[in-house]
Design a protein around this nucleic acid. Structure first.
Lengths: 242, 242
DNA sequence: TTGTAAAAGCGTAAATTTAACGTTTTAATT
DNA sequence: AATTAAAACGTTAAATTTACGCTTTTACAA
């Protein structure tokens, strides 16, 4: 294992999760106070990321970022774009930050998004990490606003054509949870009755003989996504048509 | 302008074009004969590419690759994936090749595809360059077979949702040419009458008062794609449903 | 034990879209 | 003026989508 960094190559992760009926992204606080009136104080947020190690693949690096954030392994990761423009560093804050860490001014960043199921409890999260609603992000460093926008665009298109939605919900989910996930991510309203009909026609969305527990009204039936079934049927009729 | 190379970062281009009712990709011959019986002779093909220069962006690099290939500028380029695994170099030929050029063993390659209109004449092409049908590619170096496969998958999905098809045909095209382009790329058969109906309903596919010339049968009407109109209408009803 | 409220779940019918065809028109060539 | 092959138009049945109304189920409170 070669732990040296490739000093101009990093992987940044857009970690996404549904919470409070909104799409959230995990950010890391970036602080630097040089106690110099003439220099700006850095107090903003960036995407979690890591330099690529000599003996790590790109995907492995994305996994490692997540493991360091949460202590847990994460299987599904989606590479969506690479950022390597010479002019990625725009603000004085960015330049200052990069110099203070002795990093290269031009870094190539391969960006991934990772989706965390909304029922997952992430313990052990560092204080410097915080979830933000995608619709009200704080000031971000570098080109990370752009990266998040691109990630969201990719999610919105993949959620239609790929079985990505199941990463957002619990392993066992209700149809209403599934519908709410679509509605939140795509920012649309769906008719519950038609949604149910469409989902019922999908053999890979498997009804269980199991119901919600601890709800004060009629408990709803639980479903699972069968990856096996999905990968053996050709899917061209997508759940959502918008 | 800083012409030094970033020695672990390259851009490879999958240059695509429709010809003879098939999707073709432009490859560059890779030859190296070390006149040593114990070493393999290299005589295969690779994607055209270039190291990224210190003062070039990634997209600019893709443009430069195309310009060096053809002497012409190319506007639309699509970044679809980045390859940076430590194990990209698998064969002895690859290792030999890399060493013979004094290049780094681990290179990060940002891959783009560029689409050349089928009516475009590319003169001045170097002898080492050749078009190959996607369905019958020669032996390829590195992971370039994988890169081409990934590019094709991306094209097939983008051709449905984005106005990518118009890059493949001439600026002024007939509906049958457009249909053939879809059929060839997606490897499907479409009903001409239904295709016409669908296309006619698209305001951004504009009929001209102009017809084909020099054909021996009824000349067909020419159409143009209006980018302006397209970008001002929300398109969710795609031309192809397969 | 029974009533009630709220969410879960089922059903129907009109409107739209797709799919599968037959038919007519056009313009260059014979 | 006849021929021919591609271009272009039209029709209808099937499938899908959309827009609703209505019933069932369960936990909880009366």
């Amino acid at each position: 294992m070669d732990f040296r960094k490739i000093d101009n190559l990093s992987v940044d992760c857009v970690v996404l999760r549904l919470e409070d009926n909104a799409l959230n992204v995990l950010l890391r606080k970036r602080t630097l106070n040089l106690y110099n009136e003439n220099l700006p104080e850095i107090d903003d947020w960036v995407l979690p990321g890591h330099y690529v190690l000599k003996s790590n693949n790109l995907g492995e690096t994305a996994n490692r970022v997540f493991k360091e954030l949460t202590g847990e392994d994460h299987l599904n990761k989606n590479q969506f774009r690479t950022y390597g423009n010479a002019a990625r560093i725009k603000s004085d804050r960015d330049l200052l930050w990069v110099r203070s860490r002795g990093a290269k001014v031009r870094t190539i960043t391969v960006a991934y998004y990772l989706i965390v199921a909304s029922n997952k409890d992430l313990l052990d999260m560092d204080d410097s990490l915080k979830w933000f609603k995608l619709k009200s992000l704080p000031q971000l460093g570098f080109d990370h606003q752009q990266i998040i926008n691109d990630a969201y665009e990719d999610v919105k298109s993949k959620i239609i054509t790929d079985p990505l939605i199941f990463d957002f919900v619990a392993i066992k989910f209700t149809l209403n949870e599934l519908q709410m996930a679509f509605e939140t991510i795509l920012d649309v309203e769906l008719d519950n009755r038609n949604f149910r009909k469409k989902v019922s026609s999908k053999s890979y969305i498997v009804p269980l003989e199991e119901k919600q527990k601890g709800v004060s009204k009629k408990p709803s039936r639980l479903y699972m996504f069968s990856k096996d079934v999905y990968s053996h049927v050709v899917e061209t009729d997508y759940i959502i048509n918008k």
